[in-house]
Amino acid sequence: MIYIGERINTGFKDIKQAVLDKNPAPLQDWAKKQTEAGANYLDVNLGAVSGKPEDMIWMIEQVQAVTEVPISIDTNKLAILKEAIKACKKPPLLNSTTCSKEKLDPFIEIASAYGASMIGLAMDESGSPKEVEKRVECAGMIAAAWMEAGQPMERLFLDPIVMPLKFMQEQAKLFLEAARQFQQLSDPPPNISCGLSNIASKATEKKLINRTFMVMAIASGVNAVILDVLDVDLVNAIKTGDLLMNREIYADAYLQKS
């Protein structure tokens, strides 16, 4: 599993305040905690706090001062992405583009230039798809453009789009079916990622829903997740899922932190 730590996001009050005050401590604290918990990427999201690339760069620099873990640049604004990527010490993950050509092409161009990885959302300008077919069509367009640019599939992440269980109950099942079909898009297959917390949005049993859905997603081929990497039960369920899918070699001490 590729773990993308979600916590450095101005959607969280402490991070928002830290960015407004230019106070590095909360960002660095979360960067260290998520690194220690085993994150493979640290997502950095400026959100609506500011539209200035220099604010995003400031966030990335604070994180990189305390960890070697590569950054996931969480923005759909090209102007921010173009500047922010220059500040990354290691090839980052671009999070994210849709399959709309005007967005997809520049994203791929930037990823190619920097050897970066990229998340492609299975949606277009008309919004989130409701059917499996539309998701596969969008994902196919992204994968084809990526391959045409000569980029290796191991750096492409396709996201079938998680919708809230509470409000769109029929969608979870369609996500799983789409993930299953994404695996057929290429050989070797692309990475299949999901923004997990959306599934439990506004629901009561958030952690249980996250965990249960994640295990089902693993069985459907998902191998990358944006998550609360400090949720030990969730991470343990993922590790167990990876064993059950024969992705990792079993050892009695497999849950031991290392």
Binding site: I249, A251, D252
Partner: peptide
């Protein structure tokens, strides 16, 4: 192989 991994952990 499982014990091999176990020992390393």
């Amino acid at each position: 192989i499982n014990i091999a991994k176990q020992i390393n952990i």
